[in-house]
Amino acid sequence: MLRKLAFAFVACALVVGCKGKQTKSDVESTPITTPTSDTAVESTPMSFDTSGSDSGKIPGLETVRFDYDKSSISAENKKILQGNSEWIKKNTNYKVQIEGHCDARGTIEYNLALGERRANAVKAYLVSLGVPAARLSVISYGKEKPVEAGESEGANAKNRRANFLPVQQ
Rank of each mutant, 00 (worst) to 15 (best):
S51W: 00
S51M: 08
G52M: 04
G52I: 06
S53K: 08
S53Y: 11
D54H: 04
D54Q: 10
D54N: 10
S55H: 04
G56N: 03
G56R: 07
G56P: 08
K57N: 13
K57I: 01
K57W: 01
I58C: 03
I58K: 03
I58M: 11
I58N: 04
I58G: 01
P59H: 06
G60L: 01
L61V: 03
L61H: 02
L61A: 05
L61F: 09
E62L: 03
T63R: 14
V64R: 11
V64W: 06
V64Q: 10
R65F: 12
R65K: 13
F66M: 12
D67G: 12
D67H: 08
D67V: 08
Y68K: 15
K70L: 07
S71Y: 15
S71W: 09
S72K: 13
I73S: 06
I73T: 12
I73R: 12
S74K: 08
S74A: 00
A75H: 04
A75N: 06
A75I: 04
E76L: 10
E76A: 14
N77L: 05
N77F: 06
K78I: 00
L81P: 06
L81E: 00
L81C: 07
Q82D: 14
Q82N: 13
Q82F: 09
Q82R: 08
G83W: 00
G83K: 14
G83N: 14
G83P: 01
N84P: 09
N84L: 04
N84F: 06
E86V: 15
E86F: 07
E86H: 08
W87T: 05
W87P: 09
I88G: 09
I88A: 11
I88R: 07
K89I: 03
N91P: 05
N91M: 06
N91E: 10
N91Y: 02
T92P: 02
T92V: 10
N93A: 15
N93S: 13
Y94I: 00
Y94D: 00
